[in-house]
């Protein structure tokens, strides 16, 4: 597939795969401890220029998302416009990192963002449940890539994970990675269904070993989506993986990040766990649909000193 003009490409897609890790290879997680640690990031106070920098950074990390049965060509096109120019008239804000759509909408999205750095991500592998044979799930990945998707957001088979068939998870991630070709692979763990931090940590370690370029918390389709502590567990997994292998893996919390304050807490956490190196949209994304406008309102508030109204920001 040809590169879209002007698109920022990931330097090299790493196809390196590491051996299947056993559960004992993953450190145990203490729930209370990790939740306390996550709370501590919330005590950080961002003011003035630090806050503006972080807010603007957050906009560039958005995977602006629509994943509805009602998604239409018109809806996707409008969303792509917003992703490219979040704050019309202020080129210092945005563009967003990507748009995230179902495979059928990839073609529409690719056309709509052409010439901009905005990437097109597609959810695949029988999103959100993953309850289908691997063959068809891989076919879906190939279809989305064929339509021009730059990134594939796959789901793992949580049922199999919970019944102890860990090897199957490792194998499906590796197979998806292969099916992605040059497209980037984000692996959705659906942490709300894995239920324990120990499971999240092990699934993260497995996904990374099998070749994930990103690990992602949630589909947004189950009640419990991204939280600070679950993201912290995944960031720590990324940190340890990087220490061990030298390979950077990206992180995408998705679902439930609905306001700017929370987004900034995530960024503080990324900075303190992984360092500033990870603070680009190459390595960190927000999967969100309603976060964009709150970020924009906060940026405007910092500039003007006035609290803002929704009437002044486009609804898409």
């Amino acid at each position: 597939m040809l590169l879209k003009e002007g698109a920022i490409r990931f330097p090299v897609v790493s196809n390196e795969v590491f051996p299947f890790p056993t559960r004992r290879d993953s450190p145990v997680i203490d729930q209370v401890g990790v939740e306390e640690r996550a709370q501590r990031f919330c005590a950080r106070s961002l003011k003035k220029e630090t806050k503006v920098t972080a807010l603007k950074l957050a906009v560039t990390m958005l995977d602006v998302t629509t994943l509805e049965g009602a998604d239409s060509v018109g809806k996707v096109r409008q969303m792509c416009q917003k992703a490219m120019r979040p704050l019309p008239g202020d080129p210092s804000v945005g563009p967003a990192a990507a748009v995230c759509v179902y495979p059928r909408m990839v073609g529409t999205a690719v056309k709509a963002v052409q010439g901009s750095p905005v990437q097109v991500a597609a959810v695949a592998t029988q999103f959100p449940s993953g309850q289908m044979r691997l063959k068809e799930r891989l076919d879906e990945v190939r279809y989305a890539v064929g339509e021009g998707a730059d990134e594939i957001d796959m789901v793992i088979s949580r049922g199999q994970f919970l019944q102890g068939e860990y090897r199957a998870i490792y194998d499906e991630v590796a197979a998806c990675k292969e099916a992605c070709g040059k497209a980037h692979l984000k692996v959705i763990l659906e942490t709300g269904e894995l239920t324990t931090y120990d499971n999240v940590r092990y699934a993260s370690d497995m996904a990374m070993a099998a070749g994930a370029d990103f690990i992602k918390t949630s589909t947004g389709k189950v009640p419990i989506a991204a939280t600070l502590p679950v993201t912290l567990v995944m960031l720590q997994a990324i940190e340890d993986f990087y220490e061990r292998t030298g390979r950077m893996v990206g992180m995408k919390p998705a679902g439930g990040i609905s306001n700017a304050k929370l987004a900034l807490q995530y960024l503080v956490m990324v900075r303190e766990v992984l360092g500033a190196k990870w603070l680009t949209n190459q390595w960190f994304r927000f999967g969100a649909s309603s976060l964009t406008n709150d970020l924009l309102m906060q940026i405007r508030k910092q500039e003007t000193g006035r609290y803002q109204s929704g009437d002044y920001f486009t609804q898409d």
Binding site: R44, S45, L46, K47, K48, E49, T50, K51, T53, A54, L57, L267, R271, A276, L279
Partner: peptide
Amino acid sequence: NDFLSGGFA
């Protein structure tokens, strides 16, 4: 104080 350089305002 820039966020990326690690400091806080």
